[in-house]
Design a protein around this nucleic acid. Structure first.
Lengths: 194, 194
DNA sequence: CGTCTATTTGAATGTACTCAAAAGCGGTGG
DNA sequence: CCACCGCTTTTGAGTACATTCAAATAGACG
């Protein structure tokens, strides 16, 4: 079985910090590849999240289930994205999120333990994760504001801009769940859009 | 004029990292106190955000103005909270947010320049800010999910839990703007709650 | 091919908004 | 101290956006 292609994750990290050969080698050595089949769970609500995952191919989604049993998608993680339940990862308490594969997916896992050791061994990584978390925070702030002022149709347009690789590839009910409407309403909305 | 009380910010930081005397002294030396009158702006949409602010007393709010001219409150920053336009701060591009005092407020400002120098001089601070940004990210993720599945009334209850010191101290229209409803609807909603 | 899930459609309902107007409230100047 | 001004809050009627429930249709996959 051929090794997973790790050049993508190096390219991803190189956007924000520069690694020398040793650092790169060490970093790659602590990553654990994991294949996960469509619909399988990387994390279930109530589990403890013990790693941060990077998507090599395929796609993941993270969501909660509300009291009416509806899935509420927090976000999708297509190729070249990171995903984790940040709450559970930092507190080591029961996860709020489910993280599930929406296609057969290859991941590289960085365990919490290794990640924290990495911060000491190569402080640049603390910088790297600070920066991507800052960006994620900004994205979530924007989404909060969008939720306060945009209609479902405008939120759908934003979704398409954010995930151009996904908008025509995902079951509609997933998109509906992300923008926060029922599948029925989403269907009617699309009909009236063109 | 008496000096601003800086013990609060040291206590805030000590929640996550431990500073020795020199580090504490250096950190305090780079903070710039600023008083800001009720309704005055720390940052206006379009400005470049050049500092992170810590609230010693009073209260700030950050918000956007949507295309219909409505304020949309992203969050409040009461005593012991940090506030900034993260997008503008990290990119040094035009701010999306307005940051305004909702009471006479005393701030301690940490300039972007000093903050980045601090990361090199005392790497613990990179850890500190990574941790508080992680927590802020989790809070915003929860708020996104709340926006997807909760009614206005339930969002109001969450608001009261998040800001127990504010819920009965703020003009209703500010709260309405935070939970994402019109002041008129908020008024009717409250009448029906009890 | 049959089963299961996703999507579409329609009718009735509910939640929240718009617009307009009245009432309350706080600060300021006479 | 009171009167006035501006802003916030309340109230009501009509409307728009989105949901619920039910049923029909279409697609995916073994």
């Amino acid at each position: 079985m051929p090794d997973i292609d790790k050049s993508l994750i190096i390219k991803n990290i190189s956007k924000h910090i520069t690694l020398d050969n040793n650092e790169e080698k060490h970093f790659l050595s602590i990553l654990k590849p994991q294949k996960i089949k469509k619909k399988a769970f990387l994390l279930k609500e109530g589990d403890i999240c013990r790693a941060t995952a990077f998507v090599i191919n395929g796609c993941m989604k993270s969501f909660t289930v509300d009291k009416n049993g509806f899935e509420r998608v927090l976000n999708f993680a297509p190729v070249d994205w990171w995903t984790a339940d940040m709450f559970s990862l930092i507190s080591q308490r029961a996860a709020i999120l489910n993280i599930q594969a929406i296609a057969d997916t290859q991941l590289l896992l960085l365990s919490k333990q290794d990640q924290e050791a990495l911060y000491f061994q190569i402080p640049k990584f603390e910088r790297f994760f600070r920066i991507i978390i800052e960006k994620s925070l900004v994205a979530h702030q924007m989404r909060v504001l969008d939720g306060l002022s945009l209609t479902a149709e405008q939120r759908y347009i934003k979704f398409c801009e954010k995930y151009p690789q996904l908008w025509n590839q995902l079951p509609q009910k997933e998109i509906a769940s992300y923008i926060g409407v029922t599948p029925e309403f989403f269907s009617k909305m699309k009909r009236n859009m063109d």
